[in-house]
């Protein structure tokens, strides 16, 4: 049997089809800001090793208007990332509990946010009051 003639449409600009696709790409794009922040931390670590003068230059850079603006972008990205990460979390972990009494998505969400609050407070406490 000869295959039927068909028409295949391309994928160019597929994200224009639905806002859900653009939200997805925004979520994925947060990784660019997160990667940039990791590089910023790495640079800081390098400057810390290089000595007080280099460290001060790094501190000046991240606290300059441009540095603060970029950090504002990273903050927004980090929040979008956290919200989407925890929202999708129940989809990625295997069913917990026993058949008939499976852990509800809401419990996982609540647990994740509680853990986030705890870790964040712990980290901030250490960074501000530690040493």
């Amino acid at each position: 049997m000869t295959p039927l003639p068909t028409w295949q449409r391309g994928m160019r600009g597929w994200w224009r089809r639905d806002p859900a696709f653009r939200r997805y790409l925004l979520r994925e794009a947060t990784s660019v800001a997160i990667g940039a922040y990791a590089l910023m931390l790495l640079a800081g670590l390098g400057c810390l090793v290089a000595g007080p003068a280099a460290w001060q230059r790094w501190e000046g850079l991240i606290l300059s208007p441009v540095g603060l603006l970029l950090q504002a972008v990273v903050f927004a990205a980090a929040v979008i990332h956290a919200v989407s990460w925890f929202r999708l979390m129940p989809l990625t972990i295997p069913p917990l509990g026993r058949p008939g009494r499976r852990l509800a998505d809401g419990a996982i969400h609540a647990g994740a946010w509680a853990a986030s609050a705890l870790c964040s407070l712990g980290l901030l406490g250490w960074l501000v009051y530690g040493a």
Partner: peptide, 9 residues
């Protein structure tokens, strides 16, 4: 990142 990055930034 989801747990602590917002706080760190």
């Amino acid at each position: 990142a989801a747990l602590v990055l917002p706080a760190l930034v």
